[in-house]
Amino acid sequence: MKKAVFLDPERCVGCGACVVACMDENDIYPEKGEPPLRRVYQIEDRRISENGIIYISIACNHCEDSPCLIACPTGAISREPGSGRIVTDTSLCIGCHSCALACPFGIPRYNAEEKMYKCTLCGDRISVGLEPACVRVCFQEALSLESANDFQGKKEKALMESLIKATSQKRIGFRE
């Protein structure tokens, strides 16, 4: 079953370990102007969480119906059969930046030769049963590699637990 890296924003503390692990694994040199494949954003807003701050660790989501793949004029972007990873054939990339405008998450970056590059879901690692580098290093366990169904199941379980907790607390309140 197709798996992807999921983020639990409630666990992410924005430490950036995933970014470093990703740069190490993929030999990214920021000092040469190469942007990392995974990035962490800090978003401050009172309307989004209790303390008004959340961290989002993001890389290519390897979308189910990838807009970048559709927008690519040359067929350089494709879905790998089996793993479902979205992969780039740089020999076909013409550096037109169409994928940048197609991606809702601002993922595509371009190297000095104007070829698009992005997260490959650590293809070499997952093909031998290892986790992607970012997931492996995340001590908060905010990042996880799983199927969409498993992730959804976990989210629903957590929601049910918090609902039960909230209603039981309310009952206690009534008794007092």
Binding site: P67, H97, A100, L101, P104, F105, G106, R109
Partner: peptide
């Protein structure tokens, strides 16, 4: 500013 162009579009 193509980095954020997709996010703006969505």
């Amino acid at each position: 500013e193509f980095y954020s162009s997709g996010a703006v579009k969505y």
